[in-house]
Structures are given as C-alpha cells and as structure tokens.
Design a binder for these strands. Sequence first.
DNA 1: CTCATCTACAACCATTTGGTTGTACGTTAG
DNA 2: CTAACGTACAACCAAATGGTTGTAGATGAG
Lengths: 124, 124
Amino acid sequence: MVVDEWSDETVDRLFHALADTTRRDILRRCVRAELSVSRLAEAYPMSFAAVQKHVAVLERAGLVTKQRSGREQLVRTDPDAVGRAHQALDELESAWRGRVDRMARLLAENPETEENDTTEGPER
Amino acid sequence: MVVDEWSDETVDRLFHALADTTRRDILRRCVRAELSVSRLAEAYPMSFAAVQKHVAVLERAGLVTKQRSGREQLVRTDPDAVGRAHQALDELESAWRGRVDRMARLLAENPETEENDTTEGPER
DNA sequence: CTCATCTACAACCATTTGGTTGTACGTTAG
DNA sequence: CTAACGTACAACCAAATGGTTGTAGATGAG
C-alpha cells in the first residue's frame, strides 16, 4: 500500500496548478523537451513575467522542475507528476469505493449509470 | 472508446472544483448518501451560503447533481465524476504517452495492490 | 393558515490570482 | 570589457475567489 497521504494543501496546489489552460499546455510542452522560460514565453500571448509565474505555480505543485543551464532555466515536467494527480483522485475515490469497482466501471464504460451503493460505511 | 475531447474551460472548471479541501470533502460525503445543503452546511465551520457556493462550483464542474426532494435540495456526487477527472489527466498525459500505454497501465493495475506506473519506459 | 425550515440570491468585503511594467543581476557572446 | 540575453523579483492593477450578512420565495409541519 503505497498510499501516501498528502496534506490538503498539497492536493490543493496540485489541482489548482492543473486548473489553467496555459499551465496544462506548459506541462505538455515541457515533457517532450526541456524548454527555457524565455522559449516557453514565446509561445503564449502574455509577458515573460506571466509565464514565469505560471511555471512557479507548477513548480510549487511539484509538476515541473527547473534546472539551470548557463543563463537559461530549463523547465521540465516531472514524469511522475500526472501519476501523482491520478493517485490524488484515487485517494478521493477510495473514500467510498474500492479501486476494484472503479476499474470495473472504467472497463465496462456503459451508458447506464449504476445505482447508489451505500454498501459499506467508512464512517469519517 | 469514449475519448470525449473537452473544452479547456470544462477542464479548468473540473480541476478548479477539485482544488479545494472543503469541496473534496463534500464530494466524499455526498457519494455515500445524498445530503441536503443544510445538512452539509452543518459539517463545516462556515455559513450556509458559503457551502451553497461550494456546491454550485461542484455542480458547474459536473461533479455533483442536485435533486429536489420537498423543500430540500439533495446533493449527490456523480458516480462518473472522478472518472472524468482521470480521463482529463489521461488526455494531458497522452501528449507524450500514447493512450495505448495508458490503457495498458489501467489494465495492469490490479485490485488489491497499489498502482505505480512508470510501468514501461516512456521514451523521452 | 401560520410558522419554521430550506433554499436562492444579491450585496459587500478581504484576499488571491493572473496579468502588467520596471528594475536589477548573472551569464554568455563579440 | 561591453552589450545583449535570460532570469528574478517588486510594485501595481483588475478580476475572480471565498467568505460574510441580509432578504425573499417555497415547502412542510402543526
């Protein structure tokens, strides 16, 4: 059970970082190649400083890391980052339903939504 | 393959709704039992109106639905909600890792143990 | 009917967010 | 060395967030 329990703040930062189109795009770009912040900034219709802030948000959320290379700061998406987001969702989910059920649902993926359970009460 | 492509705004709303401890807690509570907004509000150290707003955010994100029952408004977590969040993450991931890999990872995930990905080497 | 309850929503406020510009500093190119 | 580049960071601003109180409309209980 590698069910690391994160602090609420950690999860807040994670999802908040993901809740922005520009930041998600930065994540996509910086996984295929490390990009300097300036290079990144060229891609968006906003100032360098704005992009810098977005990167900072991603960094605080643990979604990217920065590495100096000369005068450039190379941004790179943490390969495990999205995995951690999945895990955070699983943790949410596990409050009421086992992962088994979740898998079954995903795999079945049928239109008919199954009924409420209330099967077991993991009382809080 | 129901790989619905969502608008940026939709994904923004989804993650933003998840980026708050109170809202995540509401999700957890309202999946095992439908709760009225008042009942929910009793659980938090904030006003009824504040909880109402949180529920509204969750509703706009498609994470919960409300159903009238007399004078009460019963809140209920959408069973597929977290699944959609996973899917949104997968979509992000697919930028550098094929959906095939994703499926492989999902299928490889076994019931009892924890998922740890990085199952295969994503060329990078 | 009357009253208490549950909900909806507006108005307001403090803080955060997402953006801007400007300035300063380290590093590399010439 | 000097100039250009890449970065960091502060100050500022508008808009969004997260919270409050207050008011008003439905609905159920008695």
